[in-house]
Design a protein around this nucleic acid. Structure first.
Lengths: 252, 252
DNA sequence: TTAATAGTGTCTGTAAGACAATATTGC
DNA sequence: GCAATATTGTCTTACAGACACTATTAA
């Protein structure tokens, strides 16, 4: 963004006298849909259990109020991500802004939602100030829609706070669309230094919630990533159960 | 969104005592990139000339502050669109939210940007309270990038207020991506009741800023719109310079 | 040898794009 | 007939998906 420069004394006086409180203002939060994949290569989401009103005891995506004047809305999202998970410097994509009247019973709250993709090993989950618990939930689907479960605990959309179910749905939908033409999937690799085609395929499968054909996935991988230089073939191989597999590195 | 119901006396007391002013709050605006096509079938954008500080005399996309508690952010965008153009009930798509520190020299302003596609005949352009002028600008490109012109007046990105050049760029980029898989183009038809394939093609050409092959466009049109039932073939034809052309109706 | 995983090759259908050819109108 | 526009058809290339097949390792 270009730097704004005051051009006149008249304008300097205007800005000095500007009363920022003359318009009523809403609260603004940055909330984050934090997604990862688990040991079974299924998509998981980080939710916190609300310790205070409103929606006390409900599960919510992490987030918090913008420190007005001290940080941008993007920085607020990054700060919240770090506070909740210790994670810094990962993929954080702005999703959508939610501003319906009455979506928060306290006062008008505008929420700018973000999506973060974080490998599970990087997550150091802490329950923040206003949370009594924080857990990863496996995201599955049945006839009624999305089913979130963490071990024995299974929650429905009624257990989600505010309009967070809508936010989660939108995040997953957007991610599914992006995965075919953006490089989002690489953010979920366990080892950022090297990966196999099968490992990348499992991430795509988790996000799309369906199994993919390995030969066809390889063709796409070569065309979109190797031939374009986005990915480099390494000389090493990784010993697995069967034939050892070639390793690649994402030049992100 | 589901309705929130207070479940306990304790919570009712909490909400009654909640002090909404304990966190500092930013201003929030809804700004709109209003696009149309002109008589030469080229893409145009509505800009207003700022009558007051900051960026006095610069051109900006229309917008305004959220009426906190009285309207959602979507409704604020629709209200601003109506105030500036008299237009109601058209395509309004949320684009992105801008919240960098210092993007407005007065105070922290979070701007939720929208894109509106409006046929030129529907536009009844008025310069609002804080605007000294309002004009449609033709959007063209040269080696330096985007060039905006209205008759003899040509402006550069330095004549645009705030970070509005970035917002405009993003709106056009998003629209170009959407045009191939969403029904946005139909919003720009001069006559919503009937149109010809050539007319629709001209809208696609204006948005993509390149000419398209009519036979190939027809194939896409039949496959994506007619065969899917999104568009109905009418019995009438429209007399034009050469062979009369079939009319279609969008069942939007 | 068998199980398991990696990796190659082939076939089909769909779609994009270039472009030739035909059709129907007004003048 | 000619200009202008609409409309149909053909050819090539690219890509997605299904699936048969081969390769290499550990046990």
């Amino acid at each position: 963004m270009k730097k704004y420069t005051c051009t006149s004394k008249e304008e300097k006086e205007f800005l000095a006298k500007y009363d920022a409180s003359k318009f009523e203002r809403p609260s603004v939060t940055a909330d984050i849909v934090i997604l990862t994949t688990d040991a079974e290569d299924e998509l998981n989401i980080l939710l916190i259990k609300r310790g205070g009103f409103p929606y006390k005891g409900c599960w919510a995506i992490p987030g918090g109020f913008l420190n007005v004047g001290k940080e941008s809305i993007d920085e607020a999202a990054a700060r919240e991500l770090k506070e909740e998970t210790g994670v810094d410097g990962v993929f954080l994509n702005q999703l959508y802004t939610f501003g319906d009247v009455g979506r928060d019973p306290r006062t008008t709250v505008i929420t700018v939602a973000y999506t973060a993709l974080v490998p599970k090993d990087m997550l150091n989950i802490k329950a923040g100030d206003d949370a009594s618990d924080a857990k990863l939930f496996k995201i599955r689907y049945d006839v009624t829609g999305m089913v979130l479960s963490s071990g024995d605990l299974t929650i429905t959309e009624d257990d989600l706070a505010f309009d967070h179910e809508e936010i989660i749905r939108m995040a997953i939908k957007r991610l599914r669309n992006r995965i075919d033409y953006e490089d989002d999937a690489f953010s979920l690799l366990k080892d950022s230094k090297s990966f196999t085609v099968s490992e990348l395929k499992k991430i795509h499968e988790a996000i799309k919630n369906r199994s993919l054909d390995l030969p066809n996935f390889r063709k796409m991988f070569f065309r979109e990533y190797l031939d374009t230089g986005k990915v480099t073939e390494l000389k090493d191989t990784r010993p697995v159960k069967g034939k050892p597999t070639k390793l690649y590195r994402y030049n992100g």
